[in-house]
Design a protein around this nucleic acid. Structure first.
Length: 432
RNA sequence: GGAGGGGUUCCCGAGCGGUCAAAGGGAACAGACUGUAAAUCUGUCGGCGAUGCCUUCGGAGGUUCGAAUCCUCCCCCCUCCA
């Protein structure tokens, strides 16, 4: 894989579609010719990252691969205040304990993408310095550099002024600006990156650095990634797609990526894998159903990054046995470590419920089973599903809602349930 | 603190004493068509072994044969005034 201090990350990020807005393309491009220190802030308000956080994480990974030093800043202090940007309502306040707990998990997840080694990347928590701030000195030293008039005209404020903005939230951007200043002073950090909703906060930091330290700092924002159907990336009916396998299993994670819309495939390959641009470009000629080959690689690579090569292989196999084997030409995205010819019949990773053999022997009404296994939200929903012809047991359509599922058709002690075209669940008999 | 306007099922939003499990739209789900894509058409979309029963319209009481709809108190949100 290419990468190294020689080719400029800025070009790489641009070509891969990471750049929305910068404080000056040329200046940043020049800046990045030398190894620098940059940072991105992460909100520890959730106990896991989700797919929507992948852009900044990938951006950091690219920076590191090109020899730059990173700071992943966990907003343990700012999370207690709540960023109003991009919100129409006030954020929920979290307890300090919960925040620090979350911060730990986030570091673990980041380590899959970044090497936290001395001098290459570090994880800092801004509660360390923010909690020590004294109100009056802070106002005198830094508060005077902020114009309320200007803050009020910012996009994020204007939105909130219509519905209401509390004073505590109004302070958020001061604190984030102070973060940048602090990191400039202590870590010589000169570049902050973030989502497009962070533009105002980033610029505020840059200005503070200039006013207080008379120094130049820079900023980059990433585009908000939406799918072709204009949904926010990573939201499904079940909610967010999480990186934590306890919240979103590797199976579902893989399925999420393979269900990518045609129009998004190339963009997502650039953003969410490290495959060389030239190869992605070459795959552009794939049309129609051939695009599925590219989706397979995308799903494999994306799953590999979060869950590891072995898990990715598992899901590939599971996918093959459920949806049919589709061999992917080795010419397509050749750098991917995805095995090209692979056996199937690996159902281990499909969501599974273990069931008592006696219950199965007496037989379980189909609609109860579908509900119990969470393929349907309620028994009523299961009845409707069956009525509409969307429920299958071992690939045979269920005709009546209360037909019994029993152990007569057991296949290796397993039954495969299916709701609709692609939601599977495995029922396994408890061995005695 | 004063005056006015609101809180309806996942979301938006009608309903303003019975015909209301509550219009319409969106989302979602299923079927058909397909490529685990999109678009389209059709159906479903509170719970329940179910032509019925149960629980919902910010919360608690009340009026009435009958309340999402009327009254009282409380909570929350918005607008204007201070």
């Amino acid at each position: 894989m290419k990468g190294g201090p020689l080719d400029n990350v800025f070009d790489v990020l641009t070509q891969r579609g990471f750049i929305e807005q910068t404080t000056g393309d040329r200046a940043i491009c020049n800046l990045l010719k030398q190894p620098i220190t940059c940072y991105i802030g992460f909100d520890p308000t959730a106990s896991s990252f989700h797919v929507g956080n992948l852009i900044p994480i990938m951006a950091l990974a690219h920076m590191q691969r090109h020899g730059h030093r990173l700071i992943a800043l966990v907003g343990g202090g700012t999370a207690l205040v709540g960023d109003p940007s991009g919100r129409t309502e006030m954020r929920q306040m979290l307890t300090p304990h919960k925040v620090s707990q979350n911060a730990k998990v986030l570091k673990k997840q980041l380590s899959r993408f970044l090497k936290f080694e001395k001098g290459r990347a570090s994880l800092l928590n801004n509660s360390k310095w923010l909690n020590q701030l004294k109100y009056i000195p802070f106002l005198r030293d830094y508060g005077r550099h902020f114009s309320v008039n200007r803050m009020l005209t910012s996009e994020s404020c204007r939105l909130r002024l219509e519905t209401g903005l509390s004073f505590i939230e109004f302070n958020y951007s001061l604190l984030q600006a102070y973060d940048f200043l602090h990191l400039y002073r202590t870590e010589n950090c000169v570049l902050q990156m973030g989502g497009s909703d962070q533009w105002g906060n980033i610029v505020a930091g840059i200005e503070l650095v200039r006013r207080v330290e008379k120094a130049e700092a820079h900023g980059i924002t990433f585009p908000l990634i939406t799918t072709t159907s204009r949904d926010k990336m990573g939201k499904t009916a079940e909610g967010a797609v999480w990186l934590d396998p306890k919240l979103t299993s590797a199976y579902h994670y893989y399925q999420f990526w393979i269900n990518t819309a045609d129009a998004d495939v190339m963009r997502f390959l650039r953003l969410f894998t490290f495959l060389p641009l030239a190869e992605i470009d070459a795959a552009r000629s794939l049309k129609g159903s051939d695009l599925n080959a590219a989706k397979t690689v995308l799903a494999f690579e994306a799953t590999k990054l979060v869950h590891g090569q072995d898990a990715a292989k598992e899901e590939l196999k599971a996918s093959h046995s459920l949806f049919g084997v589709r061999t992917v030409d080795p010419q397509i995205l050749p750098s991917s470590t995805m095995p090209r010819d692979i056996g199937s019949s690996e159902l281990e990773s499909i969501p599974t419920t273990v069931i008592d053999p006696d219950r199965l022997h007496t037989g379980i009404p189909a609609f109860e089973l579908f509900d119990e296994v969470n393929l349907c939200a309620s028994r009523g929903a299961a009845r409707r599903l069956i009525l509409q012809g969307g429920a299958y047991v071992d690939d045979k359509r269920i005709e009546t809602f209360d037909s019994l599922v029993d152990d007569k058709g057991l296949n290796k002690g397993e039954i495969l349930l299916r709701a609709g075209k692609k939601r599977y669940h495995r029922v396994k008999v408890k061995s005695k």
